[in-house]
Design a protein around this nucleic acid. Structure first.
Ligand code: ZN
Ligand code: ZN
Ligand code: ZN
Ligand code: ZN
Lengths: 177, 177
DNA sequence: CATAGAGTGTTACTAAATAACATGTCAAGG
DNA sequence: CCTTGACATGTTATTTAGTAACACTCTATG
């Protein structure tokens, strides 16, 4: 049922940290998810679809309970499993990612591509971007192999400041000076 | 107060996934922590010391509440902050690491060395090893820099099977065959 | 002998995650 | 046409993780 995914180069990157037409950005991700789900015979049901839309509203990571609040307000179930099931589905299908450092979830910015990103988490604006992670993953794999460890999944997450927030921080420390 | 740390090569590596004299291993880590704390003028108080000892009993990661249970049973406080404060201290001083994938803590196997490990987490036996992470970190740094992101901290964690558990899994799937 | 800081303990709460069970929908298969 | 089973959704209830805020005790330092 699952066809080979296109290589990352075939899909335009999302400049999370730059100004961009986000409405279009979200729309595209949703369309991609819909197409993939249809092709794979999966059901992108109302809760699941709405959950993805909620995540897609921004490039922030959202906690399951934050998502749940939104779903509940819109007439879906109001108990934790409702949110967790929808989020787990999205993560399994690669429409969203789990950000372990934050115990939170973010919509994937490159759904449908074969990608193993490094997550860049800005502590200023809470945005989460996906940087190409092939090299970093290879290095992790090599380090593991050296001691006979077989890697199944890896989470590579970096916390710091995005360009805009770093600029703002520099400016304010100038002001103090 | 803080002196330059010795490069990783000067301290023997801990073969977490191999049979080793663990009593000696734990003892060494504790001694190193004591020496460092003394040198830095930090107080390795009874709760903190005992918390480290508990983590050092195995190479597993332990949840804060699991540690707390042990502390409480030994006459220390029985409320969450008791465990969290001791664990936070150990992490800050580099005597332990936080494993975000597991929401848990593990004693550092190379305390006192300048290291930025990749954590290898075995899903079979729950052991956590530290593999050299310089290359992987450089790759993450490079990926981040490419989009103007300034990395402050990174968590690199791989889940999979250690040599022993991978061997056992292979054997049992042979048995089925 | 103040008194300020660090460390430890408490109560009380918020947040994250899962187990277990009841109900509804719908597509085969008889 | 009516089972039957898979899947999705909803619930209640509980466990696990993490923090805020306050009180008490030490131990310097002036
Ligand atoms: Zn966007
Ligand atoms: Zn992605
Ligand atoms: Zn050991
Ligand atoms: Zn370490």
């Amino acid at each position: 049922m699952s066809r080979p995914l296109p290589p990352p180069e075939d899909v335009p990157d999302v400049p999370v940290f730059a100004r961009h037409d986000h409405a279009r950005c979200a729309e595209g991700a949703l369309a991609a998810a819909e197409a993939m789900a249809a092709a794979a015979g999966l059901r992108l049901t109302p809760v699941r679809r709405r959950t993805l839309e909620i995540l897609l509203e921004s490039h922030r990571a959202m906690g399951a309970y934050e998502v749940l609040e939104r779903l509940a307000a819109e007439g879906f179930g109001r108990q934790p499993p409702v949110a967790y099931r929808a989020l787990d589905f999205l993560v399994e299908q690669g429409f969203a990612h789990r950000i372990r450092r934050l115990n939170a979830f973010a919509a994937c910015t490159r759904p449908g591509t074969d990608h193993q990103p490094v997550f860049l988490i800005c502590r200023g604006c809470n945005a989460v971007a996906e940087a190409p992670g092939a090299e970093a993953r290879a290095a992790v794999e090599a380090a593991a192999t050296a001691v006979g460890f077989r890697v199944e999944r890896a989470s590579l997450e970096a916390a710091g400041l995005c360009p805009a927030c770093a600029g703002a921080a520099a400016a304010s420390s100038d002001a103090v000076r």
